[in-house]
Design a protein around this nucleic acid. Structure first.
Lengths: 341, 341
DNA sequence: CTCCATTCGGCAAACGTTTGCAACAGCTTA
DNA sequence: TAAGCTGTTGCAAACGTTTGCCGAATGGAG
């Protein structure tokens, strides 16, 4: 049915190995022969069979991309960038979704292992041990998690959290809440640690509420708890939760940022669409996707296991405002910053 | 390196064909032998090589899923449902993104054709002819487009548009705008036709603005044009554009729904997060993804090319309100509907 | 005790490539 | 002129499965 290398060989009067070389090692075949073969191949509509090629070379030219939840708007830009970048290098991408479940995650890696050349594990919820285990079965690049000895690309969310907390402290807030993310998230631990340390150093309080599922319902559900702490500023694990909280507070008649300031993380597309626009920490997700693909594809060559950290940026919008201890100077400065933006 | 069927055969003292049958035709092998083989396979960590299997059976157990833009929140739920459903049937899913470009779309189908058993083409931007052409190279199921002779699953967006327009007419609006979507979109044509017909029948005006890229920037950019028409109600191609328009109007001091009512389409997760919450037409995207996968996988058996239409639902929230011609009765009824919701 | 049917398992040929090896031609170099 | 090199091509063995065919073993019926 399908046209194979053999048909092309017959039609152009050469041996199949010459046709094969025309595609996989062009410099080994006479330019004249090559163009003749290419012409007949084109005419016959020949496409190399990747399964057959994979069988003998051991390389599938596929990569797996595993994320916690495709519907979480944090991931699509990463997926998109990774897929486009991979395609440019003649690789195709399997995308799979674990529903935030570490078990599904592990199963998925195992199932994919044999039919891909490597896997991008994004924001895994498994334990470090499990991941190191899987690393032995298939090349892995981990995104948003640092495990010694494993290639990784992380966004420096600790730095972002520090900046965010400093911003809030500068505005005169002295009692903060960290609305935590899911158990098992490295990012969550990083934020918590960085935010906690920064607040403590400045002599401010930081109450941690969580863990929570990283969805807006969880943010909304936390509204009462946040108010009960008496805190005047909240840093949320991600924008989804921040937005959920924001709306829930507004629905209760709490003014944001008048009474409570909110900072999110991720800068998903919708963080600029809510009112007030969300102050948040922007993550370079697209760059992370591309970098991860590159690292995975290079991994075969040497055994180098780099760990790349991408910087993050605090984006000050309108969900943060002066707190109860704001000196006039700080307020003026922050107001100026707002105006500029 | 990897453990093959041959290793399992040797270790369990049977021929490789017996091992093969243990996995692909268990009823042909003695239960006792079978369990012995399974045990050693398990112990050795054997995983069948799908490339080899694909080579001989001609079925890759992969399917392709092509969407216009992964970052458009309309798609992730569909992708997620399709992927989960396919995995349950032992299929893996290649996801690819065309960036709303018909050329990329066609290239992508061709590239994927040989390494998948079929392709789900979601909201294609190609011409019908092109799609029919590709249909000859690879089994296809088209989502959100109706082409005679091609298996398809569509969401009945025409019905949704009719309901939406009737809702607006009932509120006393007599001059509407349809904020159109991208050229090449079947959905766009359907909405336009249905909305136009419904408005015309009721003796109301419907001005079409577009085509537009289906993103919120386009919605925002259309704010002036919408106001210039003097219309009091807008139906947008999708929620993204509706939200963009909503925010742009609010930024200009226009009250929604006081001065202008807005209806979106899709019911993406964020349409309930903006204020006012968006009235919109909900699409059963997850069901569409599952149905499409089923149709694709059944396609091999018979040649039946069904066309499934899934119903849509108008969800009345707070972005629509009484128009200038609203009879008191109608207003009361609609207000009651609001309250109930 | 023979015959037949049934169940089970082995044999080997495929599937469409890649690739090490060898063959050959036409050169250059000594 | 012989030896050696280079560039181009053919040959055939692999890669890990599936599957049609055949023979062996088993058990029941006559």
């Amino acid at each position: 049915m399908a046209v194979t290398i053999r048909d092309v060989a017959r039609a152009s009067g050469v041996h199949i190995s010459t046709v094969s070389r025309t595609f996989s090692a062009p410099h080994l075949v006479n330019p004249e022969t090559r163009s003749r073969v290419l012409a007949t191949a084109e005419q016959l509509g020949y496409r190399p069979n990747r399964a057959a090629r994979a069988l003998i070379t051991g390389r599938t030219h596929n990569i797996g991309l595993i994320v916690a939840d495709i519907a979480n708007p944090f991931f699509p830009p990463l997926i998109k960038a990774a897929e486009t970048h991979a395609r440019r290098r003649d690789y195709h991408v399997f995308v799979a979704d674990t529903d935030e479940d570490p078990i599904v995650e592990s199963d998925l890696v195992q199932a994919l292992a044999k039919q891909v050349d490597g896997i991008l594990l994004c924001s895994p919820r498994m334990s470090d041990d499990q991941i190191e285990q899987l690393r032995r079965e298939v090349p892995l690049v981990v995104v948003n998690r640092l495990i010694t000895g494993l290639p990784a690309v992380v966004m420096d969310v600790g730095q972002g959290a520090r900046e965010a907390v400093r911003h809030l402290l500068g505005l005169g807030h002295r009692h903060l809440v960290y609305l935590a993310g899911p158990r098992g998230s490295w990012t969550n631990r990083e934020i918590r640690r960085a935010a906690g340390a920064t607040a403590r150093t400045a002599g401010a309080d930081l109450t941690v509420l969580g863990p929570n599922q990283p969805v807006e319902q969880a943010g909304a559900a936390a509204a009462e708890a946040v108010l009960a702490t008496g805190a005047t500023a909240v840093l949320a694990y991600n924008d989804l939760m921040a937005i959920g909280l924001l709306q829930a507070l507004q629905d209760r008649g709490v003014d944001v940022p008048g009474q409570v300031s909110i900072v999110g993380i991720d800068d998903i597309a919708y963080s600029g669409l809510v009112r007030p626009r969300l102050t948040t920490v922007a993550n370079p997700t697209a760059a992370a996707g591309r970098t991860a693909v590159d690292m995975l594809l290079q991994q075969g060559d040497d055994g180098a296991t780099g760990q790349v950290t991408l910087r993050t940026d605090l984006i000050i919008r309108n969900s943060t405002g002066p707190g109860p201890y704001a000196p006039a100077v700080a307020i003026a400065a922050e107001v100026a910053a707002h105006v500029k933006e």
